[in-house]
Simulated assay, not measured.
Amino acid sequence: MVESDALFELQQDPADTATFAGLARLPLPELMAPDWAAALQGVEAQLRKVLGFLAAEEAQGHQLLPSPSNVLRTFRQPLADVRVLIVGQDPYPTPGHAVGLSFSVDPHVRPLPRSLVNIYRELESDLGVPPRVHGDLSAWTEQGVLLLNRVLTVRAGAAGSHRGKGWEEITTAAVTALASRTAPDGSRTPLVAVLWGKEAEGVRALLDGAPAVTSPHPSPLSASRGFFGSRPFSRANQLLREQGAPDVTWELPPLP
C-alpha cells in the first residue's frame, strides 16, 4: 500500500469523505499493509461481512467510530515491524476521540480519557516519563508497538455496541499471525504482549508462548486493583532485551 493513497491521507478530518461502503469494495492490499493482507487472507470473508454490517449501520444514519479512513489504521503498520502488542477493548465512544489505535486519541482532544490519564500516571511511576497534555500515541507505533483493539468500531455514545459483530474473529487471526512469525533462520520473531484487563487477557492463549505482561485494566474502575504499580513499560523492555530486541522509547513527544 502506498501511504499517500487518498483514502488514508486524512486522519479523522471532518472533510474525510471515505465511507464504510467504499471500504467494503476495496481489495485487502489497499486496506492494510501487504504483509497484513497476506496474513489475514483467511478471514477476508469475515472482514467483508463486518464492513457490510458497518455500511448498513452507516446507511441507517448511525454515527460510527472511528472514521472509515481510520478503522483499519492499526494494520497499516507492517506486521513484520511489530515487537510489542498492546490490546484494548473497543474504541472510545466519544465523537472525535477514536483514531483507530487502542488507547490513543486525536492530538487535540481535551481532557484526555481517564484510562489514558492512568496510563500516563503509571508510565511516570515506572520510568519517570512526564505525562503529556496530548493523547497521540502514534510515536509508539512508529517503533513497532501495535495498538490493537479487540473490536475495531463502535456506535457513538454506545460503548461495546459492536462486540459480537465479527471483529473478534479478525483480531484473533491478527494476534495468531503475530505469534506465529519466524525469522529467516526459523527462530521466533521477538514479541511481547501487554494485556490490560480480562478481555485483553483472553488473547493470551493465542500467543504461542510469547511473553506477556498482564494486569487489571487502566480504567478508573480497576486501575487501583493492580494496574498502578504493575510497571508494564519497563517489564516489556526487559522482555524485549531477553529476546535480543531493542527497548521501546516510551517517552512521547511533548507536542504531537
Rank of each mutant, 00 (worst) to 15 (best):
M1I: 10
S4E: 14
D5Y: 10
D5F: 07
A6S: 14
L7P: 02
L7V: 12
F8N: 02
T17N: 11
A18P: 01
T19A: 06
L23C: 01
L23H: 10
L28C: 10
L31P: 13
M32R: 11
D35M: 11
A37D: 11
E44P: 10
R48Q: 15
R48F: 10
V50L: 15
V50E: 11
L51T: 14
L54W: 13
E58I: 08
E58Y: 06
Q63Y: 08
L65N: 09
P66G: 11
S67Y: 12
P68H: 11
T74A: 12
P78H: 09
D81F: 02
R83H: 03
I86Y: 08
Y92H: 12
P93D: 07
G100M: 02
G100Q: 01
F103N: 01
S104L: 06
V109K: 13
R110C: 03
R114M: 08
L116R: 00
Y120G: 01
D126P: 04
L127R: 10
L127W: 01
P130N: 08
R132L: 04
G135V: 03
D136L: 07
D136I: 06
E142H: 13
L147K: 00
R150L: 11
V151L: 02
A156C: 07
A158W: 05
G160L: 04
S161V: 02
H162T: 10
G164H: 07
G164Y: 11
G166Y: 00
T171E: 01
T172S: 05
A173K: 01
V175S: 00
S180K: 08
T182L: 13
T182K: 14
P184L: 04
P184H: 03
G186M: 04
T189E: 12
P190C: 03
W196I: 02
E199F: 03
G202K: 03
V203F: 02
V203Y: 03
A205R: 15
L206A: 09
L207C: 09
G209S: 08
G209P: 10
A210P: 01
H217C: 06
P218N: 13
S219R: 07
L221E: 15
S222P: 05
S222L: 12
S224K: 15
R225F: 14
R225S: 14
G226E: 11
G229R: 05
F233C: 09
Q238T: 14
L239V: 06
L239T: 04
A245S: 05
P246K: 05
V248A: 05
T249H: 08
T249G: 05
L252C: 06
L252P: 09
